[in-house]
């Protein structure tokens, strides 16, 4: 039982595994509680600061504002990225996907500057920066998923009398939708790193990034840690929701994975 935990590829019982995880977390917390690092705030300080953030500074509302912006940007970016990657079927559009994926290397600050010149409202700038940033990462992931299509898969569709477009739709669009969702899940994190930055540049709408920025500025280390933990928790929850959606809509997608 316990030794299962140290056997390669072993499948410990769920109860054993969960207990193990709980012990590991507890151990970390205890370590934090009893061996405080010099600069790093203690557990108690972080908790107090968390309470303060929630009650007086509207942490929950700010988190909600950021989350909705992030989700909105993700939705737009996903649609855009899917379009750009699917269009790679046509040679004419391939350079666009290639260029889009290389724009990952553009720096956010320069980009924000340009967007600010072109757009009037802060909200638009914020959203378009997020959408742009997420799209270029999504296109990279999605085109690489499309490139995993094999000759055999395409030939199979063709021998069934499907036209080129229909074959593409069946094999690449329908057949790889589950992997596209996975790409979206993996790249959601990028939006979170960007959003905290963008919110500090356009402070009118608040958001958790701005909150974090203020804590930083006034050297409230405990507050910084508390907010980071909240973001971490949100991210973990998001991942969980995505995994759930994937299991629900694409029950076939994990059948061949080693268990």
């Amino acid at each position: 039982m316990l030794k299962d935990l140290f056997v390669p590829n072993a499948k410990p019982r769920p109860s054993v595994f969960l207990t193990m995880v709980a012990c590991q977390v507890l151990f970390l917390l205890l370590l934090w509680l009893f061996y405080p690092l010099q600069l790093f705030p203690t557990l108690g300080e972080v908790l107090a600061s968390f309470k303060d953030l929630v009650t007086t500074q509207g942490l929950i509302q700010e988190l909600w504002a950021s989350l909705t912006t992030a989700l909105g940007a993700l939705a737009i970016a996903t649609v855009l990225a899917l379009l750009i990657s699917y269009l790679t079927a046509l040679p004419f559009f391939r350079p666009i996907a290639y260029a889009a994926s290389k724009m990952r290397y553009l720096t956010l600050t320069g980009l924000t500057f340009f967007m600010a010149l072109m757009l009037s409202s802060g909200h638009q700038v914020k959203l378009s920066v997020l959408v742009f940033g997420a799209t270029v990462y999504l296109v990279t992931g999605m085109t690489s998923v499309i490139l995993t299509t094999t000759q055999e898969e395409m030939d199979h569709a063709r021998t069934l009398g499907m036209s080129e477009w229909r074959s593409f739709y069946e094999v690449v669009v329908l057949g790889k939708l589950d992997e596209m969702l996975e790409v979206v899940r993996q790249n959601f994190a990028i939006i979170w790193t960007m959003i905290t930055l963008v919110e500090t540049l356009y402070q009118s709408e608040g958001g958790i990034g701005l909150l974090l920025y203020k804590q930083n500025r006034y050297l409230h280390l405990a507050g910084v840690v508390a907010i980071q933990l909240v973001i971490l928790g949100t991210g973990a929850l998001q991942d969980y929701v995505f995994a759930f959606l994937r299991r629900m809509f694409f029950p076939y997608s994990e059948l061949t994975v080693a268990k």
């Binding site: 055999e152 030939d155 063709r158 021998t159 009398g161 499907m162 589950d178």
Partner: peptide
């Protein structure tokens, strides 16, 4: 393509469709 039915050596099917769906789409 499509004039000749061809069962390839490794028997590809549409992995995102159930068996019945695979037959129905054909």
């Amino acid at each position: 393509p499509g004039d000749v039915g061809f069962v390839q050596q490794r028997y590809p099917l549409f992995n995102h469709r159930t068996l019945l769906d695979n037959l129905l789409v054909a």
